[in-house]
């Protein structure tokens, strides 16, 4: 009986509601069954080549065969364990974060932000201690996407905090420099920045020096995102009531002490949703790097679909990539919503 009442209240409460419900149900009827049959019922999941794809459904064999490349790029097969190791450590630390007490949390945090980057670079690039060197040229796929996103966010955050504080500074030089820096990077599209980093930046270095393209791209993305993060954090700084600054000052704390101990902890808590949004946007912008020749996930899919043995399977490739991006971004946005709710209630 409850179900009937619920449907009546929520789906059929008045005439235009009812109409809406019927229209939607009709749209479902004409779109979902064909979609499902293409994706699942008529699809081929297993096989080794395009010939195995019979029927009218999706040819998921394409994905299955190329999965390693989509995930790791052109990284040599026998060295893939290094990437796996780094990610296992990463997720293990993140997972452990939720189960340990505050003291260990601090240690884990420091490990993750300071030690782990160098460890990861060593694992991925090699060249020392007997680990075979793998050029950044062959890094690609989902691995590259995650690598760039995580590194950019780790480095753009402190820069963003300094810029936000700089923009509110009383010293005119610092303030104008911060404003100029932030507005410069915010006014230009990311693609321009990437292109300049990849193509034009070498012009500004002494001839003969060669800075790795991936490094240039990461620097470019980091500086770009730091401007956006700075604005988000500035919003948080402005939201702190003046009384907090007053109280800190009246206790004798100077500019840096009051900011580090009092203002920033509160401000950063407020801006978590904004920071999460920026991170998600950064993640969604990573496909742009394929324009400058770095083959992250979308780039690998593009490459795969033009392979002569696998022509005509663009749809399957893009749907797969879409699902992967969707899972990551959706999970991140739900998590940030949960964080927001948690922090609202704890205060």
């Amino acid at each position: 009986m409850n179900l009937v009442n619920w449907t009546r209240k929520n789906l059929f409460s008045n005439w235009h509601d009812t109409l809406l419900t019927f229209i939607i149900l009709f749209l479902f009827y004409i779109s979902i069954p064909p979609l499902l049959s293409w994706m699942f019922f008529d699809a081929t999941f297993f096989g080794t080549s395009k010939k195995d794809c019979s029927g009218t459904g999706a040819c998921w064999v394409f994905i299955q065969v190329w999965l390693k490349r989509f995930t790791y790029g052109m990284y040599p097969n026998d060295q893939i364990w290094r990437i796996d190791l780094a990610f296992i450590i990463f997720f293990f630390v993140i997972g452990a974060y939720f189960f340990v007490n505050t003291k260990i949390k601090k240690i884990l945090f420091i490990f993750l932000t300071i030690i782990f980057p160098f460890l990861a670079i060593f694992l991925f690039h090699g060249g020392l201690f007997g680990l075979e060197e793998v050029e950044t040229r062959v890094w690609g796929g989902l691995f590259l996407t995650l690598f760039i996103s995580v590194f950019s966010i780790i480095f753009c955050f402190p820069i963003g905090v300094l810029l936000a504080m700089g923009r509110r500074s009383k010293l005119p030089v610092i303030r104008y420099f911060s404003i100029g820096f932030i507005e410069l990077w915010r006014g230009v599209p990311l693609i321009t920045v990437l292109f300049m980093a990849a193509v034009m930046f070498p012009v500004f270095l002494p001839s003969g020096t060669n800075l790795d393209k991936l490094v240039r791209v990461i620097i470019a993305i980091t500086l770009f995102e730091s401007a956006y993060i700075a604005e988000v954090i500035r919003g948080g700084l402005q939201a702190i009531p003046k009384g907090q600054y007053d109280a800190a000052n009246s206790l004798g704390m100077g500019y840096w002490k009051s900011h580090i101990l009092i203002i920033l902890p509160q401000a950063l808590k407020i801006v978590i949703p904004g920071v999460a949004n920026t991170f998600i946007a950064l993640f969604k912008d990573t496909p742009l790097i394929l324009v400058v020749g770095l083959m992250e996930l979308l780039g690998m899919v593009n490459m795969a679909k033009t392979n002569p043995a696998w022509l005509g399977l663009a749809t399957e490739g893009y749907v797969f990539a879409a699902i992967v991006y969707f899972i990551f971004c959706f999970a991140m946005s739900r998590y940030s919503l949960r964080l927001e709710k948690q922090l609202k209630t704890s205060n």
Binding site: P287, L290, T315, A322, F330
Partner: peptide, 21 residues
């Protein structure tokens, strides 16, 4: 949620290569 969480570039490629082609 669907059209927000899929990168714009991917959507463009999808419409261009997978549909219009």
């Amino acid at each position: 949620e669907i059209f927000r969480n899929i990168p714009l570039l991917l959507q463009i490629f999808f419409w261009y290569f997978a549909v219009l082609r």
